[in-house]
Design a protein around this nucleic acid. Structure first.
Ligand code: NAD
Ligand code: NAD
Lengths: 270, 270
DNA sequence: TACCGCTTGTGAAGGCGTGCACAAAGTCGG
DNA sequence: CCGACTTTGTGCACGCCTTCACAAGCGGTA
């Protein structure tokens, strides 16, 4: 009796259990109840920036700043001030015209929208080079993402504490994840093992996955995956180097032409 | 005598050194040379996907696959097949209708576009938890991004080899980066030190930076920065959890209404 | 209270990216 | 050699995101 939900579509449930037809009436029909969705459709890009604003604002609180204008905050976050205000408008209207935003109020509202009022326990799978670094990192704990469980297939690691948490064997993943209410799974295993690990996390009820292994994971629709791929990041940087170099050499060639052949004018078109 | 270049604009240089007026003539004037820019404007999102395709294709080569259709490749990369074809069209027309793409040909052309034909030496700054993991990681070397230098401020680390490379003191950053032709700098220091380290990398001539510290770096226009912020990633996941929970509770309330009050129809609007 | 200056919040416009749908172009079997 | 079938490459329309520009709103001041 639970309606499927498409991106940004209305969620429509009928008493008959039949999925309702597209285009629900604007005016509620007889015997119809309309519940306005609280968490509105916020662009993903805006969500990512809100997290950045939140970090900057936390720094402001520490510095004793109580009020900040969109101009100041946008400069500190490295974005356009209009964009910042639009992003904040998704959160609500908590600014004071002529003055700016109360830092603490803004922090608490962004935290609410991002769902940071609840605790999100994290499990790290694959306690190798990267897994060790993640397990030892204090930055997660302090931001409301306590690392609650570690897993590895290596028997030698099982039971050894890393960053204060003993490593569990991967075979216990379901029991441990359920018991410790893990809501985010981090995959730091070799790529060959990543899909299998992902499947086990999903069967354990984990619906959010952060993947460091350079593979594309296949998951059900109700599971959210984000990937961190350092090689891809470097290749993007490489692309920009190449683009710049191309331009430079084109310009160089152009200048050579000018100087050598006495060309009057050089145009580089897209 | 080098013309400044705005995003996506034409680069126009005149023999007088004066910036040419907007709207260069379509038909070359007398004594004018037109150089078509090779690296066209490729959407950043497409560049990121091209890097993913490249990785998938490399796996295909290892498996002995010689030909692949857009449908197969898009499934393996987890994207829409039309999007894939459009992305590949930025690279050029290297497919065969009715057949697909020759894997090796595609690999070499994507590599060319991404600038992977040159070597890009990497320097890692901050050899702590994360820096160690990065220095020990073989995945960079194998993808054409050899780690050529490591830096830390900690005297105890100086000279100690990590992943086969001795750690240099941060004060030697300029000399070492120039000598080893470092083109990408990776910042893995605590956030407080990140901006200072960034400035030193920039003065050392490094134009590409990958930043792991949770701070917004200020850099000149000609320097490209990409950031990897795990806390932000987790907060985005958290947002989705919260959204789902909201929906679930709204639906729950809706169903309660249906069952308890005999409502006929419930609509949840955005 | 009335005015002034400052900053927010948002309507509207424009640009960019995505996805559809199909013509063009090639292969392969007969 | 031809026709059926397959798959590419892209024009186009749509929707999302960004950016501009300004009315609305608030605090301070006289
Ligand atoms: N180290 C880095 O800096 C870095 C950078 C970018 C990406 N990555 C990626 O992160 C992943 C981990 O890298 P790493 O350097 O830590 O590798 P690693 O080899 O040091 O560690 C991998 C760990 O995963 C464990 N493991 C293997 N199969 C497993 C399974 N089925 N279930 C549970 N655990 C399993 C291994 O026992 C090992 O402890 C790799 O996919 C790598 O490509 C690492
Ligand atoms: N460890 C992780 O898994 C993780 C995850 C996400 C983000 N980060 C971020 O990455 C950065 C590094 O994390 P870490 O856990 O490796 O920290 P760490 O404290 O273990 O290591 C930091 C290293 O940087 C060195 N350093 C300090 N100041 C320096 C300077 N001015 N120049 C050169 N080196 C300097 C220190 O000597 C130390 O070796 C931090 O900003 C952290 O927030 C780490």
């Amino acid at each position: 009796m639970v309606a499927q939900r498409g991106e940004g579509d209305e969620v429509v449930t009928t008493a008959t259990g039949m999925p309702a037809v597209q285009g629900a009436p604007i005016v509620p029909e007889q015997d119809e109840v309309v519940v306005r969705e609280r968490a509105r459709a916020i662009p993903e890009a805006a969500v990512a920036r809100l997290a950045v604003y939140l970090r900057v604002l936390s720094g402001m609180v520490d510095q004793g700043v109580t009020t900040i204008s969109s101009e100041e905050l946008s400069a500190a976050a490295g974005v356009n001030s209009a964009k910042l205000r639009k992003d904040l408008s998704y959160v609500g209207s908590y600014g004071t015209r002529g003055v700016g935003y109360d830092v603490e109020v803004l922090v608490s509202h962004i935290e609410r929208i991002l769902g940071l009022t609840r605790k999100h326990s994290v499990a790290v799978v694959g306690i190798g080079n990267l897994g060790h670094a993640l397990a030892n990192y204090g930055g997660f704990q302090s931001r409301g993402f306590p690392v609650a469980a570690l897993f590895d297939v290596d028997e030698d690691l099982t039971g050894v504490p890393v960053g204060g948490i003993p490593v569990n064997h991967i075979d216990d993943i379901t029991a441990v994840c359920v018991e410790r209410e893990v809501s985010i799974g981090v995959i730091a295993t070799p790529p060959q093992a990543a899909q299998a690990v992902c499947d086990r996390l999903v069967s354990a009820g984990v619906q959010c996955i952060l993947n460091f292994a350079p593979v594309v994971l296949q998951v059900p629709d109700d599971v959210e995956v984000r990937k961190v791929d350092l090689a891809v990041e470097m290749q993007i940087l490489s692309f920009h180097v190449a683009r710049r170099a191309d331009e430079a050499s084109a310009e160089q060639a152009a200048n050579d032409l000018i100087n050598g052949v006495g060309v009057d004018r050089v145009v580089i078109r897209p």
